[in-house]
Design a protein around this nucleic acid. Structure first.
Length: 681
DNA sequence: TGGGTCACGGTTTTT
DNA sequence: CCGTGACCCA
């Protein structure tokens, strides 16, 4: 153990050896955060603390996996490893043991966001399912019940949403489904209702660590409070300057106010940076210093001065992409590994020109986090099949696959089955399993009845197979359902077939490694799995700034540093969060950093003329021109044309924020209009 | 049932 | 400009 401590700097060592009471480790970008956490874990165990009493929570599977690996390397003599997993995985484990306290069976199935929307769509409403989904998520994360939501709703739209929320919850309960929010909400409710259990659990986990604490939402924070209610041994690690998930509910106050909320909390700052050159850190420090709500810390360089940060000015996105591709090619020629090069952008729409230019230059690249594996239609099809095989109540999965591959069972037939099942208060599958052929043909016609009976027989056969011989299950699955064959017959099926093969392979591997597990276990494991970890060795990575968090590259390009794109302005824009995004982007770079902007960019079918980003000036990369007061392009007496009102004459000009407002006389009709909405005649 | 056409709207993403 | 979803007709 000694030697592990010797490898740490002073602040890191203090963080590792402070083990009692609340502790906030403010870990700047590239400051050895993972090393500190994993060493702390090893240290605790080395002190003789029971690994079973240590809990470490992360946000992503990737982080959990990485830490697990690194910690295990350090811990040599432990009978069992400490629990280190995502919040959601912890919730899942908890529910497997305790969901019975809510009167529910622990063979529940986890649904993902896509499934959620599918369910919501079935409750017809004119509001988009995605909106309803996010509103429901907000309710859940604020621990508001459907009844409370209905009672509080004033506006008609909110009433609709609240009512759908109620129906949705009933649907989940009926089908024994659990959504991602439930994995946290339900454990919280259980702990809230049962103080004795809460105390027991808190006693069980004497030492709790949380990674990326700046990304916790309200519910996660409250769950943590429950978990450490008896001891307050809560060590949180994070960086307020890297909080970039406010828009999805992360509450930056959790980290900003941690010292205030827990007055005896110790705060340790890790400010020594081991990743980037001095020049790069300077830019990062300069930029983030413009934020007001932060705990305040400054990255200190340990590496050499390095190259100047480059600012690349281009006329348009074509040139920008071409110049970057050219430089990337040079780097590769010089022997730089492609995996050490990345191009980042604020919004995915900007990736296109880069992709094209890299393609043209013959550079291998990988678009990180575009469409996720398990969100692909073909994979979701298989998963849906697996779900109905594992849990025959699962109606929405059935809906997805009942006509896949096409069997001629369309919407109309499905509706007939749905109403018939509802009348009898059973699931469609149960209906199909019990109904006689005669009755079924009366309901949907002889041809469909035959198809459905055949379908149900296949499912029953597979259900049997899943229970008795999971090792050969997946082969039996392809034999009976023939999804792979189906996709292979489609014109663009090549990639889909490859995905299906990969999935089948994953399944076989899982069964091999977990011989005692059930199909249910596989599905649950899968729902929490993502695969953003495979960043190719041979390829240049191109990705959004969000997707780059936690990664590092020797040579980094950040494109689109223009007002309106980065920072991305618009309604609900949080300029400080945008700045933190800029900070995250810059601090990904180790040796060489290039920031580019264009004068004009083709976007949404039109060419937009843009100003360079204020971040360039704030980072001290270009001289901050003393703000020249923007002059109005119109004056009194000018003739102008408006799309709707036609031609008019300017009567007056006034300022409206960064813009100018014109008073215009359209044939006796006086209007106040922003200058950007009219053009000179 | 399912293929075709048109209108519309459009950040960032993990579990 | 491009993908999605609603709607219509064979």
């Amino acid at each position: 153990m000694r030697n592990f401590l010797d490898e740490l700097n002073e602040a890191q060592r203090e963080a590792v050896t402070t083990i009692d009471g609340p502790l906030l480790i403010l870990a700047g970008a590239g400051s050895g955060k993972t090393k500190t956490i994993t060493t702390r874990l090893a240290y605790l165990i080395d002190l003789g603390i029971d690994p079973a009493s240590i809990l470490t929570l992360t946000f992503t599977n990737k982080a959990a996996k990485e830490m697990q690996q690194r910690a295990l390397q350090m811990i040599e003599h432990t009978p069992y490893p400490p629990l280190l997993c995502t919040f959601h995985k912890f919730g899942l484990l908890f529910l497997k043991f305790h969901i019975s306290r809510l009167g529910r069976d622990n063979n529940f199935v986890i649904i993902d966001t896509d499934d959620k929307k599918r369910i919501l769509k079935a409750f017809k409403s004119d509001l988009p399912a995605s909106l309803i989904a996010s509103e429901i998520s907000k309710y859940k994360n604020s621990l508001i019940t459907p009844q409370e939501a209905i009672a509080a709703a004033r506006l008609p739209n909110f009433k609709t949403i609240a009512n759908i929320y109620k129906e949705y919850e009933e649907y989940l309960l009926e089908n024994n489904l659990v959504d991602f929010d439930d994995l946290l909400v339900l454990p919280y409710k259980i702990l809230e209702n049962d103080p004795l259990l809460c105390e027991q659990i808190s006693q069980k986990y004497q030492y709790i660590m949380v990674d990326e604490f700046q990304d916790t939402n309200e519910l996660q924070y409250r769950l943590l409070q429950k978990l450490c209610s008896t001891h307050n041994n809560l060590c949180v690690v994070g960086d307020d300057d890297q909080s970039i998930y406010g828009w999805r509910g992360a509450n930056i106050k959790n980290i900003l106010e941690f010292p205030k909320k827990l007055p005896n909390a110790k705060v340790i700052k890790l400010e020594k940076n081991y990743r980037s050159s001095q020049k790069i850190l300077e830019a990062a420090n300069n930029l983030i210093a413009h934020n007001r709500s932060r705990l305040g810390k400054k990255l200190e360089a340990t590496l050499e001065r390095g190259k100047e940060v480059k600012v690349l000015q281009c006329s348009d996105e074509q040139e920008e992409a071409r110049l970057i591709a050219k430089r990337v090619k040079e780097l590769i020629k010089e022997g730089v590994k492609a995996s050490e090069i990345a191009v980042l952008f604020r919004i995915n729409a900007l990736s296109r020109s880069i992709e094209e230019a890299l393609n043209r230059a013959g550079i291998h690249f990988k678009l990180v986090g575009a469409i996720r594996f398990y969100e692909r239609a073909e994979i979701k099809d298989i998963i849906s099949y697996l779900r109905i095989i594992a849990n025959s109540q699962d109606e929405f999965s059935l809906k997805r696959v009942i006509n896949k591959p096409k069997r001629g069972i369309g919407k109309a037939t499905y509706e007939k089955l749905h109403t018939a099942a509802k009348e009898r208060h059973i699931s469609i599958l149960a209906l199909l399993q019990t109904i006689s052929y005669k009755e079924l043909s009366k309901l949907v016609g002889a041809k469909n009845a035959k198809t459905l009976q055949d379908f149900i027989q296949k499912l029953q056969y597979l259900q049997d197979k899943a229970q008795n011989s999971l090792d050969t299950f997946i082969d039996a699955f392809e034999e009976t359902i023939a999804l792979r064959k189906h996709y292979a017959s489609l014109p663009d099926g090549y990639e889909r077939v490859a995905n299906i093969d990969e999935f089948y392979g994953m399944f076989r591997e899982f069964v091999k490694e977990n011989p005692k597990s059930s199909l249910d276990d596989f599905i649950n494991e899968l729902s929490l799995e993502s695969e953003q970890d495979q960043i190719g060795n041979e390829a240049v990575s191109i990705m959004s700034v969000h997707a780059s968090k936690g990664l590092e590259f020797e040579h980094l390009f950040v494109i689109g540093l223009e007002e309106g794109f980065f920072p991305l302005t618009g309604d609900g824009c949080d300029i400080e969060e945008e700045r933190r995004l800029g900070y995250v982007a810059i601090t990904r770079a180790k040796k060489e950093l290039t920031l580019s902007y264009v004068k004009s960019r083709f976007y949404r079918g039109r060419r937009a003329y843009l100003e360079k980003s204020r971040f360039l000036g704030e980072a001290g990369l270009i001289p901050t021109s003393i703000k020249i007061e923007k002059r109005a392009s119109f004056k009194k007496g000018d003739l102008v044309k408006h799309k709707l009102f036609g031609i008019g004459r300017v009567l007056g000009v006034s300022k409206a924020g960064r813009e100018f407002k014109l008073t215009i006389n359209f044939g006796g009709n006086k209007k106040e209009i922003l200058a950007s909405f009219v053009e000179r005649v």
